Simulated assay, not measured.
Amino acid sequence: MTRSAADALLAGNRTTLATYDAKHFGWSVNAGVATVTLNRPERKNPLTFESYAELRDLFRQLAYATDVKTVVIHGADENFCSGGDVHEIIGPLIDLPMPELLLFTRMTGDLVKAMRHCPQPIIAAIDGVCAGAGAILAMASDMRLSTARSKLAFLFSRVGLAGCDMGACSILPRIIGQGRAAELLYTGRSASGEEGYAWGFYNRLCAPEALLDEALKLAADLVAGPTFAHGITKKMLHQEWSMSIDEAIESEAQAQAICMTTRDFERAYRAFAAKSRPVFEGD
């Protein structure tokens, strides 16, 4: 393949998302930070069939985005997300046959897969209600900032369903431990912001009025770092769950060797030698 052919192939796979026209949630991109706003505050920002699918498709596109380095997801007004809309999702599901129900549960699971596989770190800014599928969105994010008044609840048992929804039985125990995860998934009870922070679900608690600014500042700090290397870190954090220690160490050796070929690695060395702060460019 010639250089020009390779450039054309790569150009066809790259995309910019600053002008993406979201239909079912708010979307903006500023200086490498994308903000997703779940925007149905009158219902505490529930998800619908359409918003599930559009979020899944958007996070898949992020794998090819050149203008997005970090993502912040939050809810409009004083709540994060109340889960799947009771009337627009749960009601219709009662009348669907099993094959169509499986299509739905696979689609919602694909949203979590897309979040875990996109290279950008995802920061969830969580205030108020964070329940059901909203709790899953928070769980699937890489970092979570919250408020003391937040209420985290995996509500599936409350509607006659198992707690094993969208990867919860795999991911949640890795964040807060098996026993604590079992308690939340069996009982469906709410955990306060202080409890979630003490358990390690939240990275920090913020004042409600400062929550989004704190999340955006953290996102900007990540954008200022070696973003290609951040993508490798995210990949390895996810991939090493199913590895032995020996496999993980070898995989990290290979991943780190790849990072050592980047210009950012060279920039860091030259800045150190010049006693200055490196300016990373993500390549």
Score class of each variant (00 low, 15 high):
residue 143 M to E: 00
residue 207 A to Q: 09
residue 130 C to I: 09
residue 139 M to Y: 02
residue 143 M to N: 00
residue 224 A to G: 15
residue 209 E to D: 06
residue 188 G to R: 11
residue 20 Y to M: 01
residue 205 L to R: 04
residue 225 G to N: 12
residue 180 R to N: 08
residue 176 I to N: 06
residue 14 R to Y: 02
residue 145 L to R: 01
residue 140 A to R: 00
residue 110 D to L: 04
residue 94 I to L: 06
residue 202 Y to T: 05
residue 9 L to D: 01
residue 204 R to F: 03
residue 33 V to E: 09
residue 117 H to E: 15
residue 240 E to F: 10
residue 232 I to A: 10
residue 118 C to M: 14
residue 144 R to Y: 00
residue 166 M to Y: 10
residue 242 S to K: 09
residue 86 V to E: 12
residue 182 A to T: 14
residue 197 Y to Q: 05
residue 247 E to Y: 03
residue 185 L to R: 05
residue 73 I to C: 12
residue 4 S to R: 11
residue 35 T to R: 10
residue 209 E to R: 03
residue 164 C to V: 13
residue 241 W to V: 10
residue 71 V to I: 15
residue 124 A to G: 03
residue 127 D to Q: 01
residue 242 S to M: 08
residue 34 A to K: 05
residue 120 Q to D: 14
residue 93 L to G: 03
residue 185 L to G: 03
residue 144 R to N: 00
residue 121 P to I: 07
residue 108 T to V: 06
residue 25 F to V: 05
residue 234 K to G: 15
residue 220 A to P: 04
residue 233 T to P: 07
residue 71 V to C: 12
residue 76 A to E: 12
residue 126 I to V: 11
residue 26 G to A: 06
residue 90 I to G: 07
residue 244 S to C: 01
residue 106 R to L: 14
residue 194 E to G: 06
residue 176 I to R: 07
residue 108 T to P: 01
residue 221 D to V: 13
residue 90 I to A: 10
residue 136 I to N: 11
residue 65 A to L: 06
residue 148 A to R: 02
residue 248 A to T: 07
residue 107 M to W: 04
residue 16 T to N: 03
residue 135 A to M: 07
residue 24 H to F: 14
residue 184 L to F: 04
residue 22 A to K: 12
residue 188 G to F: 04
residue 237 L to M: 10
residue 106 R to I: 12
residue 153 A to I: 03
residue 248 A to Q: 04
residue 189 R to K: 09
residue 210 A to F: 01
residue 244 S to K: 02
residue 277 R to Q: 12
residue 168 A to R: 01
residue 111 L to G: 13
residue 133 A to H: 15
residue 197 Y to R: 04
residue 222 L to C: 09
residue 161 L to G: 14
residue 82 S to I: 13
residue 187 T to R: 13
residue 247 E to S: 04
residue 272 F to H: 12
residue 67 D to A: 05
residue 267 R to V: 05
residue 51 S to N: 11
residue 260 M to T: 01
residue 235 K to C: 09
residue 203 N to S: 10
residue 118 C to L: 15
residue 33 V to N: 13
residue 225 G to W: 11
residue 144 R to Q: 00
residue 200 G to V: 07
residue 155 L to S: 06
residue 109 G to K: 09
residue 31 A to S: 10
residue 38 L to K: 09
residue 79 N to R: 11
residue 129 V to L: 11
residue 214 E to H: 14
residue 159 V to F: 07
residue 209 E to P: 00
residue 93 L to H: 02
residue 137 L to G: 07
residue 38 L to S: 13
residue 24 H to Y: 15
residue 114 A to P: 15
residue 248 A to M: 05
residue 19 T to V: 05
residue 185 L to N: 06
residue 235 K to T: 06
residue 30 N to W: 07
residue 282 G to Q: 02
residue 194 E to D: 09
residue 155 L to H: 02
residue 149 R to P: 00
residue 43 R to D: 14
residue 186 Y to K: 10
residue 72 V to K: 06
residue 25 F to T: 09
residue 217 K to S: 15
residue 118 C to R: 12
residue 150 S to Y: 00
residue 77 D to I: 12
residue 137 L to M: 09
residue 226 P to L: 08
residue 112 V to T: 13
residue 109 G to L: 03
residue 42 E to Y: 05
residue 246 D to A: 15
residue 110 D to P: 04
residue 219 A to F: 03
residue 86 V to Y: 05
residue 51 S to Y: 14
residue 33 V to Y: 08
residue 112 V to A: 06
residue 29 V to H: 03
residue 175 I to G: 01
residue 234 K to P: 15
residue 225 G to M: 13
